[in-house]
Amino acid sequence: MQSVRVIPCLDVDAGRVVKGVRFTGLREAGDPAVLAAEYDAQGADEVVFLDITASSDGRDTMVDAVRRTAEQVFIPLTVGGGIRGVDDARRMLRAGADKVGVNTAAVQRPQLVSEIAGEFGAQCVVVAIDARRRAGTGEPRFEVYTHGGRRASGVDAVEWAARVEALGAGEILLTSMDRDGTRDGYDLELTGAVVSACRLPVVASGGVGNLDHLVEGARHGADAVLAASIFHFGEHTVAEAKERLSGAGFPVRPPAAYPPVGPERSAS
């Protein structure tokens, strides 16, 4: 059975969550480890940390946040952003990340995908593709953007997806830069085009404003649906997202199917 994963994404700057995550009742709402534990309790299938840290000191703080998360959250953790080489990947994986996301560095030097896959296995290499529609008529075309969506690379997003599969990637995290932050829903033509172009699992990202958008992503072939603000602002829980997907006929892991084992989860 093919199930659909629901993945909350946290933007982290120097070890602190940014973009104002508001949960009631959590004292440390800026701590990625605490928020990851909260999403775990809601039934999240995975958590993504997007590291937007600029400084190297901040990067150390990020490694520490990953370590603290891995000590208390027993679901898969992906860390993307700032992975420039095999050593950066090793640091994050050693700290407890299960997968690392690469974007800019892989576009600049595609061999990096093969290097990380060769060293740690394809299963831990997520290629993050930030894509934007090209102007023009006819069949839509999408271009890969790097440097946090600021720089056009000239690379076609659909061709890039097929290429990174051949290079040994294990998964694609596909973000529509046109839709990111709009709450208008995923760019479903982009999702569908990349799903058709490669056999890798594809995580749809960018633009989710309501739970029906998650269902649309799954209908267009996404293996996993990622969202940020609808979860962060407490509009919807992960459990509600799963209920909607399940109601639409997509198998999902039932949230909180069994009580936790061992010492009580603590929020500190």
């Binding site: 000590e71 050693r94 061992g262």
Partner: peptide, 16 residues
């Protein structure tokens, strides 16, 4: 010397 073994160790510690 391969991959992330910390998670396995931490999970076993978690269950005592």
């Amino acid at each position: 010397g391969i991959g992330n073994l910390r998670s396995a160790q931490k999970a076993l510690e978690r269950v005592g």
